[in-house]
């Protein structure tokens, strides 16, 4: 069923209005989401991290080179982004 022209025009107008309104809404929702994630996720982790860091103080060493894992990986491991 084809809608009449005035209705199509109205829908197109509403579409444009929503797009204009949605952009700032998206920015605000991103801001809220990221802020909550930061204070809940990062903040709580920081408490545990600091406790653990106090228990394991850094010691002085002769070399700061750290050994890397050199055992061969299977092919699937290279397909993972981690």
């Amino acid at each position: 069923m084809r809608l009449p022209k005035p209705v199509l025009r109205l829908l197109s107008f509403l579409d444009r209005v929503f797009r204009i309104l949605l952009k700032p809404l998206q920015v605000v929702s991103n801001f809220v989401f990221v802020t909550i994630s930061y204070f809940l996720g990062v903040g709580l982790s920081a408490i545990f991290y600091r406790r653990a860091a106090k228990k394991n103080p850094q010691s002085t060493v002769d070399s700061y080179w750290q050994e890397m894992q050199t055992t061969p990986k299977d092919q699937d491991a290279w397909l993972r982004p981690f």
């Binding site: 700061y64 080179w65 750290q66 050994e67 890397m68 050199t70």
Partner: peptide, 8 residues
Amino acid sequence: LDLTHEIR
């Protein structure tokens, strides 16, 4: 090719 040591 093996990388054996690193600085992080």
